[in-house]
Design a protein around this nucleic acid. Sequence first.
RNA 1: GCGUCUGUAGCUCAGUUGGUUAGAGCGCUGGAUUGUGGCUCCGGAGGUCGCAGGUUCGAGUCCUGUUAGACGCCCCA
Length: 450
Amino acid sequence: MSLKLTSYKGTRDLYPVDMAERRYIFDGWRVIATRYGYKEYMAPLLEPVEIYAAKSGAEIVNEQTYSFTDRGGRQMVIRPEMTPSITRMVAARRQEMSMPARLYSIANFMRYERPQHGREREFWQLNLDVFGIDNIYAELEIINMSWDVLGYFGATADMFTIRVNDRRLTDFIMRDYLGLNDDQTMCMIKLLDRYDKMPRATFDEAASEILGGDQGLIDRLNAVISVETLDDLPAEIRDNQVTAPLRDLLGKLQLQGLTNVVYSVRLMRGFDYYTGIVFEVFDEAPENRRAMFGGGRYDGLVGLFGVEPLPVAGVAPGETTFREFLLAHNLMPDFSDSCGPNITILPIGGSDTLDAATDVADELRGSGLNVTVDYTGRKADKQTKAAVKNKAGWLIYIGDDELADEVMTIKNVGTGKQDKVPAVELVSYFYAKLDEQLDSLLMDKVGEEE
RNA sequence: GCGUCUGUAGCUCAGUUGGUUAGAGCGCUGGAUUGUGGCUCCGGAGGUCGCAGGUUCGAGUCCUGUUAGACGCCCCA
């Protein structure tokens, strides 16, 4: 009976190449968050169950979280999301924090769900939240960041669409325009959320049932579900003040040249804690069309902690769907040849050369260079082959001759050229080479810009 | 919780109507070459054919169950 080789269901093993891809994504996220003045925080991996129960249904928390009882009898949960935690943190310093507070984190979460395309049990998310701005500029900033977070990696407007809606407008349509009660509204929102997933006939049938077969209401519903812009809405909705925030936001985004932002009357984002504008970023890759991530305004949560309420807008891109977006649009660099140290020392003589290699490695490392040593004692060709495969930039051969002469043989893997360098000049040799590399990199960069 | 598809070497796969000891390429590893990489040649390791039952003289192959994975549904904070 041997141990299993596979990782736990819904989790991923990240080998160096995978990790390089993750680092690439996270580093880009940090650049954009920082560029907008957001500061990084971190919350605990575990939270008491109550913090989620207030917001999500008890059912969801019980069935879809990893939870356990600690030794003190407390019901604890591995965080399934960041919003309650950061809300708690901000609420705890409600009086002393200067507003607006712009905060971000990149963290992992766990949900006990069936893994499928784009969904894992353990996943990482960038959480961006701005606290303390009650006007539309908060949403504007969040959507701009969502755009830039993709644009930073080379995404262009044709690769994705940002769909925007307003919870208050949806409520108006459900209650005032259609005259639905709470239950009907809830069912209708759920139904609209799945509109694109079902055949039209199925939708019509379900809608008719919710509306009690009232043909007048069905006609009114049909008049709104297929509109593409705010202006296409029936006059009694279009001319109501409830459309003002969306109109304002869309106008501002248009002025900024964000051509791929559209109004979507069917966008629902579940119906948890959002109180105003909601939006979703859609991948338009033909083989990958679906919602990547979303966000919106949630003004009601801070107050749940018993402090003066605060308006909040946020967005949370997930690594899983983000990675697939980059792959689908050919935006992920190839990291398969970018791991490994710069310099590999190959001792190819007696055991003396192993000791000498260790000393040389120590000296170079002391000067800030990345160095590894092949201690296998294999023949020179095997050592060379392994080092090249590991993407070493330079090889230092230390054999009996080098030891005797105190001169090292250095090979540039890229060019195949070799130099004989006195042992005492090794460090300055490599720094001169690094300078050359930097210069040529700068030249390339200048060349690109021209 | 429900459904569909897929499990043969580390990877990609072959394996005839059920028939001896289960194969190939790549990868890994050693040698040809007691001191130099991407070629070439020769060797080696690595498989209870996902697991368990059943049918059969005989099962990688057929049947049943089960498990794991992928993808959908439900859900998606």
